[in-house]
């Protein structure tokens, strides 16, 4: 059930589009470790561009595989950061720098202090709030009470994009609805429920 454990064996989802540069060997190089200053290349412009493509790639990869939490050390072995055909990989340090950048963009949030696992918002919590509320609205469930587990794992949501949604992301999304007085969350821990208005 954990996303990271099954990541290796997952087949390529049909909606996953690789960036053109995925086949470009230099795409996997952040900079040279040589101490000589003129070797710290590619230059900043190149890196900025490279980084934005990497960020978009991480998001679409996680979206296609429905990965809510990315465990960095595991992810480094997946095709996300490792192109085995090319024998090129994005190094730990570079991937960490990338995720750090994505944190500043609001696409990623570190889980805990170790910076080992990142919550990837391939949709922002606010967007999730809208998606969930639209689903509630279109299925006539306003006024009814659902448990958080039902929303993420229930049979009813099997065809929804937010099926298997990470509890933490779900809470953040629901918080938006609560703030707009469209939902009320009650209960504690595993027994949490939500009522939509």
């Amino acid at each position: 059930m954990t996303t990271t454990a099954t990541m290796f064996t997952k087949p390529k989802p049909p909606n996953l589009e690789y960036p053109e540069l995925y086949e470009f060997p230099a795409f996997f190089t952040r900079y040279h470790s040589s101490s000589s200053p003129q070797n710290t290349q590619p230059n900043d412009t190149t890196w900025a561009h490279q980084r934005s493509i990497w960020a978009a790639w991480v998001l679409s990869y996680c979206r296609a595989h429905k990965i809510w939490k990315l465990q960095l050390s595991d992810a480094l072995e997946t095709e996300l950061f490792y192109n085995r055909n090319l024998n090129r990989r994005f190094k730990q340090r570079d991937a960490a720098e990338l995720l750090e950048y994505m944190v500043t963009e609001g696409d990623v949030e570190w889980e805990g202090v170790g910076k080992a696992t990142a919550i990837v918002y391939w949709r922002k919590p606010e967007e999730w709030a809208n998606v969930i509320y639209e689903w509630i609205d279109s299925t006539g469930q306003k006024g009814s009470v659902l448990t958080l587990y039902e929303i993420s794992e229930g049979d009813l949501t099997r065809n929804q994009e937010f099926h298997t949604i990470d509890p933490y992301v779900l809470r953040k999304a629901l918080d938006f609805l609560v703030k707009r007085s469209l939902a009320q969350v009650f209960g504690a821990n595993e027994e949490m429920g939500v009522k939509f208005f």
């Binding site: 470009f24 060997p25 996997f28 190089t29 040279h32």
Partner: peptide, 25 residues
């Protein structure tokens, strides 16, 4: 060439390789 972004560095081969995105496609 590197500083003009005309070539990118690839440091994962035996020797540093320099690739040009313009000719890659």
């Amino acid at each position: 060439l590197l500083s003009d972004s005309l070539v990118w560095l690839d440091d994962q081969a035996d020797e540093k390789e320099y690739w040009a995105p313009s000719f890659f496609k």
